[in-house]
Write a protein that binds this DNA or RNA. Structure first.
Lengths: 145, 145
DNA sequence: GCGAAGTATATGCATTTGCATCTACTTGAA
DNA sequence: TTCAAGTAGATGCAAATGCATATACTTCGC
């Protein structure tokens, strides 16, 4: 294996590993009664957009198949957290918006989760490292040049 | 939200996002015919240990519930990639080992996957950034001090 | 405009997952 | 020893997931 390949793979593996360790730690917290982590993820993504968001757009940010997301939205709608709206320019499309209840739940759980994230991450990295990590991950997530 | 909290959360979110973007990209590759990514992950973890590994140990490195892992092992055993061995000092325990076939499959797919990882990651980060990322993620994955 | 090809989302169905619980074994204290 | 409490892993069952495909719309070349 070429050295560049090894370096890239080692870095990726350590990222995967950090992801797994922390996800496991967050999942163990007792804040996921009302919403599973995946459901929270959907509500969180929606909470970030001022405008109702297209399902396809939402899908890009989640590790779920499109049909699984479609059905997850079914459930969230049924539970009154999300509503489906028609897309103005595309008759096939659907836009999703948080309901007031949905926004409340997201905020409440988000507050606890953010605290857990800050605790876990800040216990291991200092501010400089956090800034470096963010910059590097931002590049990693950017479209390939 | 305190600044430290925000910084930590922003960094974590960018890591999540990088993880999602790249996982999606890797999943789209046409190399997962014989093994799903999750199955590959199990075989890969096993391939790293010279000794047969305990299920509980394996479980720590995977984002799967214990029962889901137990059944995944069932399937991998049935397909001839893994074998279950008794644990020498614990009658409840099970140790897992790759079969020769399992090792072959893991290596074959691993070769392709490593190439994809190197391509994707190296297109976005230079060697210095890779080393920083690895160091930081290693700290992140370390047990809390 | 019109039909073929393309895209956004939904649905049918088999498989996989997680939660609760069970079994079998180990440990530790009296 | 013996037995209560603890741990490793397996199993029953309902719910969530992915794959293939259907449906409803849009777009593009003619």
């Amino acid at each position: 294996m070429a050295n560049g390949t090894r370096l890239a793979n080692t870095a990726w593996e350590s990222l995967m590993s950090a992801h797994a360790v922390l996800m496991r730690q967050f999942a163990a917290q007792d804040i996921w009664r009302e919403l599973s982590m995946r459901e929270y993820d959907v509500l969180y993504q929606l909470s970030k957009c001022p405008e109702p968001q297209r399902i396809g757009e939402l899908h890009k940010h989640l590790l779920l198949s499109q049909p699984a997301l479609s059905r997850m939205v079914d459930r969230l709608v049924e539970r009154g957290f999300v509503e489906r709206l028609a897309a103005p320019e595309d008759g096939r499309g659907v836009r999703l918006a948080l309901t007031d209840t949905g926004r409340d739940v997201q905020r409440r759980i988000g507050r606890h989760h953010a605290r857990d994230v800050a605790r876990a991450v800040s216990a291991r990295l200092d501010a400089d490292e956090l800034r470096q990590l963010e910059a590097i991950c931002r590049k990693l997530a950017s479209p390939e040049e």
